[in-house]
Design a protein around this nucleic acid. Structure first.
Lengths: 121, 121
DNA sequence: GATACCAGTATCTAAATGTAAACCAGTATC
DNA sequence: GATACTGGTTTACATTTAGATACTGGTATC
């Protein structure tokens, strides 16, 4: 009986662990929106700043560094004058596509739900 | 030409919006782990506190309130003495299963990557 | 009567996030 | 040549959020 409880707890923890690994890298308000913006096409800093609405330059700068560290985003400096910096998504970043698609699907269904059946939600 | 740029920006913003809707409800360190724990089976407050490792009682309490508000989790008070409170996932909460599965898959692949090919990540 | 369990709260501190402005190099405007 | 602007940050400061710790009030256990 105790063994069963232990198994259930282990099952739970085993289920949660890889999700924590993913969330360590992706959680927060901005990382996924930035990745989505870059999936549409590569962009320069100011362009990203405009398209990821509501983010501050400081946050964008910080989040891009973290995404770059985790090899989801690539930063390319072009030797023009003045220098232009281009951010693009890596192949590894593209591996998040299924996660992002599911999240978008759910978000759209959720929005429909609160618009058309607000009393139920 | 300007119309094209505008279309690209709109595409980007259209892609991001439903994701923001989803993230408004799910983002942060704890909500998805709590949902996963409750997907394994319904639980009482202290059981959740033990199984969602690292969370404080204050955070757990706050996150459960928000999840309940969004109808992802149901709170049931049993009139025993002392009262026992049971948290369970709703049907609507179950609609997150595909999102969670993709997130878990990605998390497992990511973990493999950093264990077996750390130099590349 | 002391201790422990349950389902949380209250209080205080630490960390994350946000806001506003400044910085530097180059460019365009007057 | 002075002024103002752009791009890509960085800094200083304020606010918000999260975390650590202690506590409550009722019940059951030793």
């Amino acid at each position: 009986m105790e063994a069963l409880i232990k198994t259930e707890r282990n099952l739970c923890i085993t289920h949660i662990l890889p999700i924590r690994d993913a969330l360590d890298i992706l959680s927060g308000k901005w990382k996924i929106p930035i990745i989505v913006a870059l999936c549409v096409h590569k962009r320069r800093f100011k362009e990203l700043h405009r398209d990821v609405q509501g983010i501050t330059a400081k946050m964008l700068s910080k989040e891009l560094k973290e995404l770059e560290m985790n090899k989801l985003v690539k930063r390319t400096v072009h030797d023009t004058s003045p220098v232009t910096v281009e951010y693009s998504i890596t192949d590894y970043g593209h591996s998040l596509t299924p996660v992002i698609n599911e999240l978008r699907d759910w978000g759209m269904k959720h929005r429909d739900k609160i618009i058309y059946h607000p009393e139920e939600v």
